[in-house]
């Protein structure tokens, strides 16, 4: 019979169609996972998706340079998280990771207050993909490159 395949070819076709089905299932699942898979909301996401106030969420972005204010108790911070287009005001009381500084990435866990500000309970620093010695970072600073 012409339509009959050798067992080896049959297995090849079977493996091929299984792979095809898997890739298809993955492609279908990805958009659904997009929301669930996201570790934090950027300030723009807060505007676009409007998570209900009071729900525990994470907010991530860059600490806006010049926006950090430390209160007299030394533990309470107010700063602005920006993603370039939107900004969110954040308040946080507690210890700050070493890498927390202006212009660097940060991920805060907490709740959105009814007035649109964010009350953080936990603060994590985010590291970017740039690795360089201190001297290089210093020489880059005036031009405002990654180290700024």
């Amino acid at each position: 019979m012409a339509g009959k395949l050798a067992p080896r070819h049959q297995r090849l076709v079977l493996a091929g169609s299984a792979a095809f089905a898997l890739v298809g299932a993955g492609l279908l699942a990805l958009p659904a996972l997009e929301d669930k898979g996201t570790f934090f909301y950027a300030p723009s996401d807060l505007v676009r998706k409007r998570p209900p106030a009071g729900e525990r969420i994470r907010l991530g972005g860059l600490v806006k340079p010049g926006s950090v204010f430390r209160q007299d108790d030394g533990l309470t911070l107010a700063f602005v998280v920006t993603d370039g287009s939107q900004e969110t005001h954040v308040r946080y009381t507690g210890l700050v990771p070493d890498l927390f500084r202006e212009g660097q990435g940060v991920v805060a866990t907490g709740r959105l207050l009814p007035d649109g500000r964010f009350q953080a309970e936990e603060l994590l620093a985010k590291h970017d993909e740039n690795y360089m010695p201190p001297e290089v970072a210093k020489s880059l600073r005036p031009t405002g490159s990654p180290a700024s």
């Binding site: 996201t38 570790f39 985010k126 590291h127 993909e129 740039n130 010695p133 290089v136």
Partner: peptide, 30 residues
Amino acid sequence: PVIKYSVEWWNTLHQPASIRLSGSSIHPDM
């Protein structure tokens, strides 16, 4: 591919790749 592109598809705490076909953002000494 989920591991590889996780840092691009989703917001993650982990930083994106430093070494790409277009170049590296790691200083040559490192």
